[in-house]
Amino acid sequence: MAVVSVQQVSKIYGHRLSLVNALNNISFEIKSGEFVGIMGPSGAGKTTLLNMIATIDQPTHGRVLIKNQVVSRMREARLANFRRHELGFIFQDFNLLDSLTVRENILLPLALDKFSVAMIEQRLAQVSRVLGIGNLLARYPDEISIGQRQRVACGRAMITKPTLLLADEPTGSLDSKSATELLQYLTVINRQEKATILLVTHDAFTASYCRRILFIRDGQLFSEIIRNGNRQQFFNQIIDMQATIGGGGRYNAITPGH
């Protein structure tokens, strides 16, 4: 079953004189339980694409369906509700709230949804066990390390058990050790909790944890690769593809299409 369906989506920014075609007629689908990465050079339109799916932005043409609902046509209040229930976000710079403790940061989405205290406590315990942050709960975000902060952000995204977990360059500000840890956690979540994950990155190492990768360039789908060997092999494949996009490399470009 397709969780996400992006249909002929285009996005044009700017005014009459300086138009930017950030996305140009992109279509693809993501199935339930998939772990998908989006790659591309800087300015390719990755963030734009993610924002469309995240319902934060609306496409100029085409439409986006999540669980068969046309989110690109929903009204603001319903959208907020939809985001709260169906989507989880991990931002590059975490965007944790400084005034809240780790515990409060994580449970915030449930509190907003007026869950019962018992339910909140139960989910919180579960999430903090998976992410290994049980001993940090009483601290404030500026009292923990950057890697831990990203895990907290991850916990906040997971706690609502979203249909779709979205991450925009989640490892962008992490050192390689923290990045590896986070990616391992995401893999665990993907496997154990059956969460569908879509992450944007321009880093091949991060991308190598995904099962499938979509490459975009200049707002268009450029190619797609699927992991069937081990991670190292997949990593090499990604490197090659990046080289191709950049112009040159071992493989020729695979034209988009299925």
């Binding site: 209040a77 907020a80 985001r83 709260r84 976000f89 709230l97 989405p109 906040r156």
Partner: peptide, 16 residues
Amino acid sequence: TLQYRTLKKIGMSVNE
């Protein structure tokens, strides 16, 4: 502003 943007992204509506 950033704080409120975050809140909106995690699902608070403009009215809330």
